[in-house]
Design a protein around this nucleic acid. Structure first.
Lengths: 224, 224
DNA sequence: GAATGTGAAGGTTTTCACAGCA
DNA sequence: TGCTGTGAAAACCTTCACATTC
């Protein structure tokens, strides 16, 4: 076992490190296509606009994947990183709210590519229930809890109006789903052990707005 | 002038602080609707799952907005925060790529609410060019640079495939637009002074995946 | 009494710098 | 020689604690 993931002495890994691992993974996929056999922390850092030390530190939390003098084996490191992120498998995902954003997510190719398979859709609109989106029949949101359980859903994407998001999430929690990606601009309450990530596009525009009015030079081009 | 935004001695404000200001703004809008006259750092902190000290520190970077013993005046603070974020005005936004995500963004109400007005659409697909989306005629991407300039666009949302994103962005930069919200999963190159924010939904699902396989207890429920 | 504003303390993340290995 | 892996230092961010003000 080369990833020290045994439950003893596991260091808390920062959110930034995890996000950078996602980026390394993407870049490693690219490097693989470009037929690189190995890659140095310097090269990875250059592509991600980071320091080589940062890249090495991030990876070192999970093991020693490189060879001194040579760098990291691309294919192998990619496999390791995907294992760390838990994307060396298929995740069964449901989506609630087949509106603007919901529909876009159903057709979003990057999800499938990375093993996130949207296999269930829910809505409360009678006109949508029963209709077919990309081969999936939209279910009635009334049956959310039971269908999530019956279909062994592991993650739910919430793309409903802010006013109803909390009720939906309460149901999702009852179905014992432990991971939620939330698009509603609201602070959801969930019991501990349930993971919520918020996707808020307005916040990013607001960041840009702030940067502009403050002539704020972005540190290395801003959030990557 | 109560915001120390004169060019002398401006402290670097962290990205986290700005994001929290966005959240305060949202919560202040809510508090205003609930007819709160004032709010304490304690109450704001509770709603955002932060510490009161954090709230006070964040605000203190920009001035002294509160009254000891009382708290912050809701309406006034909201106005101040919107001023700081630069959202006390209308921003003219263009969107490139009227596909899945692009279409969703055009109809996304939160943008308009916060003063981000999408006033131009571009695509390279002949079937889309000339068509009407929410009252906006889709322009040919060939004319991107000139039309961005003629229409005094200040921000561009890029929702095109990763393979073409860089070319589009090069054009956007030529049009002297200084703010880009990028949905393509790629590290864009822009000259310094141009602000880029990346919106990557897959990264958030990957974070959830990591959290799940690592039985990783989220610190206060994860990214809010 | 209640709650802000803020130096100082404490904690976390990033960078440095170099020993160690191919 | 080239590049990793990693303690130590530096930078950064958050929390504490209290003087200050209403």
């Amino acid at each position: 076992m080369d990833i020290p993931s045994g439950d003893t002495a596991r260091k808390r890994i920062s959110e930034s490190t995890i996000h950078r691992l996602s980026r390394y993974f993407r870049t490693l996929s690219l490097l693989e296509k470009e037929n690189f056999e190995t890659v140095s922390s310097k090269e990875l850092a250059k592509r991600e606009k980071l320091t080589p030390a940062q890249v090495r530190k991030d990876l070192s939390f999970f093991g020693s994947f490189g060879t001194r003098g040579l760098g990291y084996p691309v294919a192998e490191l990619k496999a390791k990183v995907s294992r760390i992120l838990g994307i060396d498998r298929i995740w069964r995902v449901a989506l609630v709210g087949v509106g603007n954003i919901g529909s876009a997510m159903v057709s979003y190719k990057e999800f499938i590519k990375q093993g996130f398979h949207i296999v269930k859709l829910f809505d409360n609109d009678q006109r949508k229930i029963g209709s077919n989106h990309k081969g999936i029949i939209v279910s009635d949101i009334k049956n959310l809890r039971t269908e999530l359980q019956d279909d062994r859903i592991e993650m739910v994407i919430v793309a409903v109006p802010a006013t109803v998001a909390q009720y939906i999430v309460d149901d999702i929690v009852k179905a014992e789903v432990k991971a939620i990606l939330n698009f509603a601009p609201i602070n959801l309450k969930v019991p501990s052990g349930v993971h919520v990530r918020n996707e808020n596009m307005v916040m990013e525009l607001e960041y840009l707005s702030f940067a502009m009015v403050n002539h704020h030079s972005p540190k290395g081009g801003g959030k990557a």
